[in-house]
Structures are given as structure tokens and as C-alpha cells.
Amino acid sequence: MHEVSVAQTIIDAVMNEAKEQKAVKILGVTLALGELTMINTEQIVFWIQSFLEGTIGEGAFVNIETIHGKVQCNKCNVVTDVFIEDDGISHYIIPDFTCGHCKSKNTFICQGREMIIKGIRIER
């Protein structure tokens, strides 16, 4: 639901960088999004491309890489992957935050909540 404001923040950063680089065209934007953020990837692509219309970035590709979720266990300290089940139809995801090593539920999310603008492809 906050894809619009996140997209706006991304566009501001992308436009600043493009200006600094003296770009005449932005050909693409690459993001890395944590799979445990509450960001819908289809919506974020839609809004970024919408904001780029009428600018030097019109028609640019938006590439999204996924940062997988990881938890660190408060009991054994081991970092393990968050197992995410996706039913493949409604994309209802069920993350399992159990420690993959000792099976404790006393864990915290240590990766997977990032929203990173990795870079842009430009023409100078």
C-alpha cells in the first residue's frame, strides 16, 4: 500500500544520480528488495514506470532482485534461511521464522527487510 511513496523516493534518488552523471537517458533501474518487506513487486514496477513517463527515463526497464529472508536465533545464535511457502496461485506467502538449526521460535529477522536501489543504466 505504500508503494507510491516508496516509488517516489526511488525516483528522486534515481533522478539525482542521473543528473549528477549528466545522463541524457535512463535505460533501466535495478532494485534489490527484501522478501519480508511489505512491498508488492508488480506495483512498485508499475509506479516507477508511471513516474518515469515524460522524463529521460520513459520506457526504462525496472529489474528487481530478491534478497532472501534470514533469521538469527536468540538461543543458538545461528543464522538460517526463512522458509517461505508460496501457493503459486494467489501468492499467499507463509514465512516460517523457526530457527533452521535448533528449531526454536525465538528468532529475529536479520535479513530480508531491505529496499536497495542497486543502480541505473544510463546513456551519456
Binding site: V6, T9, I10, A13, V14, E17, Q21, V24, K25, L27, R113, E114, M115, I116, I117, K118, G119, I120, R121, I122, E123, R124
Partner: peptide, 15 residues
Amino acid sequence: MHKVSDVKIGQDIMK
């Protein structure tokens, strides 16, 4: 002729 380049940003907007 324009030159195409990849520019690294690496900014976490949640930072």
C-alpha cells in the same frame, strides 16, 4: 554516439 554505462547507487532507502 551515446555511451551506455551502468552506475552503481547502492542506497538502502530504508536507511
